[in-house]
């Protein structure tokens, strides 16, 4: 157990708490939710790099689904597909110049990747019909709105003086 492990565990705990809290929110359409746990992933990405962010994100999907009783249910695989796609996009977004692109860009791109991964898995597995793409504009709108809000919150957290415990 290294200091790295403890740091990842701490961040993952925060992300899990947010995703469990969020599961209690009503949603007009299954799949549309704020994705508050991604704020934590963005903060970890900026402070500690992609590897830690991937750990936090995947631990969040795993433990979050266990906590709300979704483990190995369709929702779990959709969340996993979304998380894997957004981590891939975040890895690519790391190459963008930091002077021009901040956490909001990372957040919006990750949100789009998230719904992209989910809808492709849903098309391939759950609803094998092109009708699922009918929902894409709604999902994309939600991704843009929540991606922007989460990115702003992450940017604001990152602008805070860093506490001892999280350094």
């Amino acid at each position: 157990m290294t200091a790295d492990d403890r740091r990842v565990a701490r961040y993952a705990a925060a992300a899990i708490a947010l995703s469990v809290a969020e599961a209690a929110l009503p949603s007009p359409l299954p799949g549309i939710k704020p994705g508050l746990a991604n704020i934590i992933v963005l903060v970890v990405l900026a402070r500690h790099g992609w590897r830690d962010a991937a750990w936090v994100s995947l631990l969040r999907v795993l433990a979050g689904s266990l906590a709300i009783g979704q483990f190995l249910a369709p929702g779990f695989f959709l969340a996993l597909a979304g998380a894997v796609c957004s981590l891939a996009v975040l890895a690519l977004a790391q190459a963008l110049p930091v002077r021009w692109f901040g956490p909001v860009t990372a957040s919006v791109l990750a949100a789009f990747a998230h719904i992209g991964g989910q809808i492709l898995l849903a098309r391939a597995w759950l609803v094998p019909h092109d009708g699922v793409f009918y929902l894409l504009p709604l999902f994309a709108t939600a991704a843009l709105v929540f991606g922007t809000i989460n990115g702003l919150i992450a940017a604001r957290l990152l602008a805070l003086p860093q506490g001892k415990a999280t350094s």
Partner: peptide
């Protein structure tokens, strides 16, 4: 509370 969450609440 975990640190990340405490930060969030503070913000």
């Amino acid at each position: 509370l975990p640190d990340g969450l405490r930060e969030l609440l503070r913000t």
